[in-house]
């Protein structure tokens, strides 16, 4: 289902209206209006303390909101928590397991709680453990697993469950690079199987790999929500275009480029131009056309997009990484 179709039916996988959560004197969430469409991967990006985990804990009914409402698949998380829990699953930021149980028995317990077909259950568990490279550790107790293994087991629970709404809270923290890629691919696969997915993270690479849309949370407030390209486009002068010319750039061309928007600098040698523009895909064809008309030969063009960290900096005034 496309975003617009979901809106037409007024059906969101997740919808919060003026959702607030207060711990003592601290506002963890402030009047949050947030939606996730069915079938999409929504990445919630924010530094530690931005309210990501509080939002997820509220959606999975562990936390009761201080005010406002939250619905999962149209079901109110406060009024009908049990039904919400039937359709969603969460992989916690800190792995939660029975310390003296083996990974397979933890997964069996989880699968049985969510009515996974007993006939298929064992195969599904075995395959998931193999996919996430947990099979070798099948005889270890949970308390003897490494941080990365425990984290992968946390993800495995949701992969076995295949809920309508799957929530992952920093799914690859403590996981090595190879493991990260595996987890990301399994999350994408889960979406293909029909799950709506929310991923909370402060890792830019993770967000870029997974997100259909990104929500930036900061100080318990929703700062902005959109697809990554649109967020990047929203930064004025966000794209960097480096153009190499075979000869020094003629002054006439520089005058002409000024009319195309953006700002640019020319190298001391005069044959390298660096432009900061809003949309490189619009600016580059017009620049090449102007250059051709004035007989300036282009040797190289390099386009650099702003990172999500730049996006975060643009909208919050603070760096994502610096805040961690």
């Amino acid at each position: 289902m496309t975003h617009s179709q979901a809106h037409d039916l007024s059906l969101y996988a997740v919808e919060t209206i003026s959702l607030s959560k207060r711990y003592g004197k601290t506002d963890a969430l402030r009047e949050l209006n947030f939606t996730v469409d069915e079938g999409e991967i929504m990445v919630i990006l924010g530094p530690n303390g931005s309210g990501k985990t509080t939002l997820l804990m509220t959606l999975c009914t562990i936390l009761k909101p201080s005010s406002g409402t939250a619905k999962v698949m149209g079901i109110d998380v406060v009024k009908d928590g049990t039904k919400v829990r039937e359709v969603m699953g969460i992989a916690f930021q800190e792995a939660r397991g029975f310390w003296r149980h083996k990974p397979s028995s933890i997964l069996k317990f989880h699968a049985s709680m969510f009515d996974i077909d007993p006939v298929k259950r064992q195969d599904l568990i075995e395959q998931t453990m193999k996919d996430l490279e947990l099979w070798e550790s099948r005889d270890k107790l949970f308390m003897h697993l490494s941080g990365g293994q425990a984290k992968r087991l946390e993800t495995a629970k949701i992969l076995v469950q295949r809920p309508k709404l799957a929530i992952f809270d920093e799914p690859t923290s403590q996981v090595d690079l190879r493991g990260k890629r595996k987890i990301w691919d399994k999350i994408l696969e889960l979406r293909k199987q029909g799950s709506t997915i929310i991923v909370a993270t402060n890792e830019v690479r993770e967000a870029e790999y997974l997100a259909d849309r990104v929500t930036i949370l900061y100080g318990g407030r929703l700062i902005v929500r959109d697809s990554i390209p649109k967020l990047k486009d929203a930064i004025a002068g966000g794209d960097v275009v480096e153009v190499g010319f075979e000869d020094p750039v003629p002054g006439k061309l520089l005058e002409g480029l000024k009319t195309l928007g953006g700002t640019f600098t020319v190298s001391p040698g005069g044959d390298q131009l660096r432009a900061n523009v809003s949309k490189a895909e619009d600016w580059v064809p017009r620049m090449t056309s102007a250059s051709y008309n004035m007989g300036a030969k282009i040797s190289t063009i390099k386009i650099t997009e702003p990172s999500l960290d730049d996006v975060f900096l643009h909208f919050t005034g603070k760096g994502l990484v610096d805040n961690q």
Partner: peptide, 18 residues
């Protein structure tokens, strides 16, 4: 005490049980 600190109770709270 251990289950609370290890988060197992919170995990139970995400299961479809009242």
């Amino acid at each position: 005490w251990l289950a609370l600190r290890e988060g197992v109770v919170q995990y139970y709270m995400t299961l479809p049980v009242r």
